[in-house]
Design a protein around this nucleic acid. Structure first.
Lengths: 197, 197
DNA sequence: CGGTCTCTTGACGGAGTTCAAAGCTAGTGG
DNA sequence: CCACTAGCTTTGAACTCCGTCAAGAGACCG
């Protein structure tokens, strides 16, 4: 297997029993997509025609509100599954944007290939079920952390969980992800560095 | 069909093509659960053994944070599906509580019956896929509304979307759902009634 | 090298919290 | 059926966190 396939295989195997043949099937149906920096897999108003696995690179998933403010929901890195399932399955326009922050390589799947996978690779259906449940749980967890933690606590938690994000992503995007303004993040960082000195 | 079955049938048919026989299958596997006011379907730390459809009554789904504060994530009413899928499928303890606010009647399903449904009622698998996608989208929507709207805007939106909730649920629970303290909700209400007079 | 995008810093303001107390309501048991 | 209590709601005052407006410094790219 080439390195990309191997990553995917290892990743799938963490959740369900997945044979190399299963991974072969999956990759046979995948469309390999290269995104340049700042390119979009989809933008709000479009149909999210693909769901994808991130083999290389880093992206942001975000929404633009009526006042024109961007809200970053998550950063996707290697070994993440990305997309808007609601738009994908229901074939309705997505309100979200998925943009590359670096050159990216994705393995993309259309609804049609997804449905073929269901019959051809039963383990995949099982994976999907578990992955969806986990995704919903993760989204809930994020929502709750916004309620009960201060911005500083959320910043420190992010620093702990994804330390590499800070090397890959400009600071004002981090602020947007944390749900605060860039100025506030700057102040929080200053206060933390003052305090530790 | 009895009235409960008919509600369920109508509800399923809104999302996917669902025959009366399908509904029959579903109900044959359901366990009818009655909850008294203040009783729990599950509490944090337990395994969420059931997923359920609310036939009658009203419940709250909430989390208790390390500081002992309760955060209500949603109120479930008639025709809602409820449960913690992550705990349910992955058989790990749930961090959430599901409590009846009134006497309730649920149609409950265990993981085992769920897996039987998959082979016996293909339309159900399709429903589940779509329902999960919508649930995730709804959770995201809630999270974003917390970021970009003030508490007053969220209050007014709730009033518009679920006017009956205010008759069924004490005000401090509404506050918890909105992500604010009861005092703040009281003040918001006062200001709105002063302004409109 | 110039322009745009990003980060920092300061002063002020507003939304919501905290602490505290008092009034109200509904459920319970005698 | 009334009295009592526990829980719910309201109100006030002080405070905190973060947003807004504004300006300047630094970094990156063509």
């Amino acid at each position: 297997m080439n390195p990309g396939h191997e990553n995917l295989h290892r990743f799938m195997n963490k959740t369900v029993r997945f044979t190399e043949a299963d991974t072969g099937h999956l990759m046979a149906l995948a469309k390999v997509v290269q995104l340049k920096k700042k390119e979009y897999l989809f933008r709000e108003g479009e149909y999210a025609r693909y769901v994808g696995y991130v083999n290389k690179g880093c992206l942001r998933y975000f929404h633009t509100d009526p006042k024109g403010e961007e809200h970053i929901i998550y950063f996707a890195q290697e070994n993440w599954w990305i997309g808007d399932l609601d738009s994908f399955y229901s074939r309705k326009p997505t309100p979200y944007n998925l943009q590359a922050l670096e050159p990216c390589e994705l393995f993309a799947f259309s609804v049609e290939t997804f449905d073929r996978l269901r019959s051809e690779v039963p383990a995949y259906e099982e994976f999907r079920k578990l992955a969806h449940a986990r995704a919903t749980a993760a989204r809930l967890e994020t929502m709750l952390s916004q309620r009960r933690q201060t911005a500083e606590e959320r910043y420190l938690a992010l620093l702990k969980k994804f330390p590499d994000i800070f090397q890959r992503v400009p600071q004002h995007y981090i602020a947007s992800y944390l749900g605060i303004k860039p100025q506030s993040l700057s102040r929080i960082r200053k206060q933390l560095s003052d305090g530790s000195r």
